[in-house]
Simulated assay, not measured.
Amino acid sequence: MNKLKKEPLFKVKDLVIDLYTEQVSVRAVDSVNLEVNAGEILAVVGESGSGKTVMTLGPLGLLPEGVSVDIRGQSQCSGQDLLNKPARELAKLRGENFGIIFQDPISALNPMKKVGPQLASQAVRLRGVSKQQGKEIAIELLQRTGIPDPEDRYNRYPHEMSGGMLQRVMIALALVGNPKILIADEPITALDATVQAQILELLKDIQCRENIAIILITHDISVVAQMADQVAVLYAGRIAEYGTMEDVLTRPVHPYTKGLLSSVPDLRSKRGENASGPAGITGSPPDQSSLLPGCRFVERCPVAQTFCSKFRPPLEVLPHLSQRHFVACPVAVESTIEQMEGEAYEQ
């Protein structure tokens, strides 16, 4: 008897997100499909403005105020639909399943309240415990996230703590509700290199010990190589390449992915002097308020053909290489297949 395929913990299908202000409308996310399993780290990588944060936080109702949002498609967690839910139901579902680690913890915490009581009040709200139990949970979480002398730090204000300690508090806050999924939105950008390594090690340890899924939003390829199981490369609201970390980083196919990798010197040197792809990416991303038909990357692509400006490339599995490696570029896929067939013929 065939085993039934296990349902992913989180998935989006044909997700489209349009943002509207009084002046302009933007197609921020355009027909995205991806999924995350329990205990897995999915890195969403791309340049600033590619739609990484909107794609992840939009379905959770966490976009900034003052922007009208139109979301279509499917977004599910543990089989439950996140879209088209009343605000109260969505907030409950979000609190039970997701923990959010924001890029700037100082703006996510109330500067007028001590950090410990902020954690304790969330424990009371999300776990339904008493105030004393909430305080005990808060101190335990501070200790669990590597904060020394947690009883003392419980009574500190945010401004009395370093950036690294505040990010640990932010991680503790994200863990209060015993989430199934952590969303880490550029969690180490404002930290120095030593603290960055410590925070990444902490996240990896949490993921391994508790089987929590992590969606890691980043533009740092070295972090992706260090942390990710799966990688989704996002460009102008569309996925350009999607697959395992090993496939995407060591056998990139899409010209945009190659460009991202070639812009990182240490990764480029590991791939060798003869690695294909441009040394970085020329030009700028397109204006997503006035997008043209066809491939979003066409004006910056070194292998673009005439039809690329008219034909929207679908995200398709790469034949002969991996059933979990998807690429949205028929030109690059054809070139890769020809190269592989040539290498097989020579052998």
Rank of each mutant, 00 (worst) to 15 (best):
S289G: 15
P252C: 00
S269Y: 13
L261Y: 06
V224L: 06
L216M: 10
G277T: 03
V231L: 02
I239S: 08
I215S: 12
T257A: 01
N274W: 13
L260G: 01
T250G: 01
A225M: 08
P255H: 06
A232W: 00
H219E: 15
L260K: 01
D229V: 02
S262M: 09
Q230M: 14
A213K: 02
T218L: 12
D266N: 10
A240S: 14
V248D: 06
Y242I: 10
D247Y: 08
L216W: 03
S289W: 09
V224A: 03
L267Q: 07
G277P: 06
Q288G: 00
L260H: 03
R238F: 09
D229G: 04
T218I: 10
S284E: 00
S290A: 15
I281W: 09
R271N: 00
R271T: 00
K270E: 13
P278W: 01
D287S: 11
P278Q: 05
A279K: 14
V224Q: 08
K258L: 07
L216F: 14
I281G: 10
V223P: 02
P252H: 00
L261N: 08
L234I: 15
G283L: 12
I217N: 10
I221A: 08
V233N: 14
A275N: 07
S222A: 00
G259E: 06
S276D: 15
A232L: 11
G283V: 09
V264F: 02
R238P: 04
G280E: 11
S289P: 12
T244G: 15
I214P: 03
N274Q: 11
P252I: 00
G272L: 03
S263A: 15
G243F: 04
A228R: 03
I221R: 03
T282Y: 10
A225D: 05
Q288A: 00
V224G: 08
T282W: 05
R268T: 12
P252W: 01
G283K: 10
I212T: 09
D220S: 06
S262I: 02
